[in-house]
């Protein structure tokens, strides 16, 4: 554990709770892509299967359980409790076009051809693009509430901090993992446009609106 990794985890945790608090307080999931949340649910469930097979640390176990539960609660709020506020007309990204090719890629490009390893690889690849339905929704409606943009910023920052952590680990432990690094870079690059708008607009107190 180094400071970049810890900051990344905190940023990730913060993102998930910002989203939950936004939905709970406003009693609405307007502007939130249910599809992205389902993809994140799949990411956590396929990656954290090792909860049942190996114990790493209390920190590790607690964080994994929080990520899974918080995401399942978010999915429940979007599709059940506050379903009336879910903007499904604008959540039209074809998520299956991500999941199917990524499942194929995970079977072809992995560290070891075993069930857990392939599912772990699938979750790493899937996480890198899981935000696409959300970004697509925002570009379609042309706007995002300020709190939604805080959520996206914290979520984008998390993987960026993990990249710094991997650079650090490469120099201190001679450790690196190409699958995680390539997927992490792709994931962070997807947020670049958003980061630019966030810094130029939201920080200056303006509503976020995207050019058509």
């Amino acid at each position: 554990m180094n400071i970049f990794r810890l900051a990344g985890d905190i940023s990730h945790l913060l993102a998930i709770f910002i989203l939950l608090i936004k939905i709970w307080r406003s009693r609405s999931c307007a502007g939130i892509s249910g599809k992205s949340q389902v993809l994140f649910g799949m990411v956590f469930l396929t990656r954290y299967l090792d909860l049942f097979t190996s114990f790493i640390s209390v920190y590790n176990t607690v964080m994994k359980v929080i990520f899974i539960l918080a995401t399942l609660v978010t999915i429940y709020l979007v599709f059940f409790k506050f379903r009336a506020t879910y903007d499904s007309n604008n959540d039209t990204f074809r998520a299956e076009l991500l999941v199917i090719p990524i499942a194929g890629l995970a079977v072809l490009v992995n560290h070891e051809f075993s069930l857990f390893e392939i599912l772990w690889t699938f979750s790493i690849y899937l996480e890198s693009v899981s935000i696409m339905p959300q970004l697509y929704m925002i570009s379609k409606t042309g706007e995002a509430e300020t709190i939604t943009s805080h959520y996206l910023f914290a979520l984008g920052l998390y993987r960026g901090l993990y990249i710094v952590n991997w650079v650090w680990r490469y120099y201190t432990e001679q450790f690196y993992d190409w699958i995680a690094i390539v997927a992490g870079v792709v994931q962070t690059l997807l947020y670049c446009d958003f980061f630019y708008l966030y810094i130029t607009k939201v920080i200056k107190g303006k509503e976020m609106s995207l050019p058509a």
Binding site: H111, Y162, D177
Partner: peptide, 10 residues
């Protein structure tokens, strides 16, 4: 196994 070192990460 390459990934054992990565297992602590989330």
């Amino acid at each position: 196994r390459i990934r054992t070192q990565l297992k602590d990460e989330l």
